[in-house]
Design a protein around this nucleic acid. Sequence first.
DNA 1: GTCTATACGAAGATAGAC
DNA 2: GTCTATCTTCGTATAGAC
Lengths: 191, 191
Amino acid sequence: MAELSSRDRMIRSAVELISRNGVDATSFSEVIKHSGAPRGSIYHHFPGGKTELMVEAVRAAGAIITRRISSAAATGSTADVIEAVGDIWRLNLTRSDFAIGCPVIAGGLARASEPEVAEVSAEVMLGWQKLIESQLETAGYPAAQAKSMANLTITSVEGAVAVCQTTRSIEPLEQVIASLQGLSRSEARSN
Amino acid sequence: MAELSSRDRMIRSAVELISRNGVDATSFSEVIKHSGAPRGSIYHHFPGGKTELMVEAVRAAGAIITRRISSAAATGSTADVIEAVGDIWRLNLTRSDFAIGCPVIAGGLARASEPEVAEVSAEVMLGWQKLIESQLETAGYPAAQAKSMANLTITSVEGAVAVCQTTRSIEPLEQVIASLQGLSRSEARSN
DNA sequence: GTCTATACGAAGATAGAC
DNA sequence: GTCTATCTTCGTATAGAC
């Protein structure tokens, strides 16, 4: 197991802090403290300043989730994809006492102060949409239904994560996963 | 039409700024500038400081939305409730070039820095859940389905608003509204 | 109710030594 | 690659005059 570079440790910490507190509320000082990286090398590693660090963090976080969805889509059924996204957020929420949310949405909501970060979030999300859409089409959904179901999956799960954080309950997510599972079964039957 | 008091103008501006930039990124100075309210009276009107202003803003914003849902639920069908929440966010998103999101979710996501505000957001959301649940039960849904469908409505719409802001497209919301409408029709048939 | 002045801390960013 | 020092701006909050 190779040691992570200072740069990578900073990105990793930024991902966690963004997931917890959002982009605007994540400062260099906190990233330094959390990562244990040296103060003096911030602008050496990230000449673009905070924006560059945040962009890298959202890109890295998005890639991890994309990979999870992708491997579930490759080997499994629609139910496996839904279960995979459910697992990601169930774990993050319960392990963090509902403090950790989706860093990609956090990036998207920071458009006013960090438009470049929001743009990365948009790209990542469109990637998720296409990925799930393809899986559904492979599973036999007509194009229009695949699009609609992929959209409902992404929006309801993202919304559920935020509602879980707000109400400090895992129920909204569990119910959404159950609804999506049920829906995927009945839509599969009707085609 | 009575003039709004300084206090009310500050709350009204805070609602808009929270909806655009989130709780953490909304400062007193911006609220003052936006509302035109006098600088010197902030702590006269809000002895509890920023926290008190934010609490009042989320409470006020939540009440407005609750009223809209409530009147749609009282006079109409399930389809009307879904259409009502769709109308609220379609208008806010398109009129603001996707800058305005849900202030109640914004409050909920600020739990780390403003726990009292998040608590108000949680109460407001539980109110929405109960409200929509009751409407669905009145429309003939069994309790479990009503709960599940109300949850899917809230989470998917909240998620759609955030995804629309991120991708700068109204499509995610339109698709969600269409999905929910379709779902309410088919579930109504199956009961 | 509203004003000014002020205290204090934290933020992002840059310069220059090592 | 990493350090310290410093600049500037902005945030919340308080005190005391009017």
